[in-house]
Computed example of a mutant assay.
Amino acid sequence: MDFLMIELADMKLFVQAVLSGSLSAAGRELGFSPAVGSKRMSRLEAALGVRLLQRSSRRLSLTEEGALYFERCQAILLDVTNAEAELGLGQAEARGLLRVSSPVALGRHYIGPALAKFASRHPALQVQLSLNDDVVDVIESGFDCVVRIGSNGDSRLVARKLADNRRVICAAPGYFAHRNPPRIPADLSQHSCILMQPSSAMHADWQLHSTQTGESQTVRVQGNWLTNNGEQAHDWACAGLGLVRRSIWDVAPALADGSLVEVLSDWSGDSAPIRVMYASRRYLPLRTRLFIDMLVEVFGSPS
């Protein structure tokens, strides 16, 4: 067996084929035609003298030797990536398709602009951004990373915290033209609240925590406006239709320009940290790692 015949590009092709579940998809990711990708895979197996993949028209599966080689290749490629990054060589390698998912409001205000800035530094990059308030399956959907608000909920994923995130209650100044702002949580029951939930119930229980004493209170609120979309709830609040409870990151621009004003500032909703999540720590494409590093920089204070 001649190890000099084994090229890093072939190892990358093999690893990408396993991760994507398709040799053709792996070839496209790395810039190979299906014919060239198949030829390179056969060359790698010939150099090693073993079959690494069982290939059919529907799926790929690792042989026992392939599973062992896959683990070693991941470690080798990670070492190469880290070495290039330390020498400043990795910047030119951020290429290919970067697929990101994010909640709608967070995506529009933060993730979308971050991607635009990131792509300007890496002209060879292609970007796909999916904005969806529903929880998506990172692995099944093929995303490189997803940004989520709240708990991980998926033990298969690596999670990196980007920022703390408190929920605030706010309304448009015009909403208070003929009514007094709530002074204590119990006052919320006398106000029209914009509800954001998947059910059809026109009421909800809002749990609040005192930032001064740590006390918790649960208040039953109700209103005439219900939606399952955070952006719509935000727009209704800005139109003066009621009080809304939203992430500070979602409403920070509106609070800054006066479109919304915060009430009960000594009380906060449940904290739901903002995290970026991805499927593998061991073989993370350079484009994904560099973008995650940018996100860490982007999420400073929202005020």
Rank of each mutant, 00 (worst) to 15 (best):
M196I: 14
G300N: 12
I184Q: 06
E65W: 04
A119L: 03
N132R: 13
V104G: 09
D293P: 04
Y110R: 06
P302Y: 06
D137T: 13
F143S: 03
S259P: 06
G66T: 06
A35T: 12
K117G: 15
P253A: 00
P182I: 01
S259E: 07
S141K: 08
G21K: 00
E140Y: 05
R281W: 02
M5K: 11
L106I: 14
S216D: 06
K39L: 12
A25N: 05
S24D: 09
S120E: 15
V138T: 14
C193W: 06
R59N: 09
L131N: 04
C238K: 11
A163S: 15
D10Q: 14
I274E: 06
L87C: 14
P285M: 01
F32I: 02
A75Y: 03
V244T: 10
N165S: 05
D137G: 04
A239R: 11
D293A: 13
S20V: 04
N180D: 15
G107V: 15
G37T: 04
G88S: 06
E29L: 14
V18N: 05
V296D: 14
P253L: 09
R275G: 15
A67N: 04
F291G: 03
I248W: 08
T63V: 09
L290Y: 11
G112W: 01
E93I: 12
V147W: 04
S102H: 00
V219N: 05
R220H: 10
A94L: 13
I169E: 10
L13W: 03
R167W: 13
R59H: 12
I248Q: 12
A171H: 10
A201L: 09
G31N: 05
V100A: 03
L4H: 08
G31D: 01
M202A: 09
V276A: 02
I139K: 11
L53W: 02
H191S: 09
Q126S: 15
L208H: 01
L290S: 11
S155E: 11
A116E: 15
K39G: 07
Q91R: 12
S101E: 10
A163L: 03
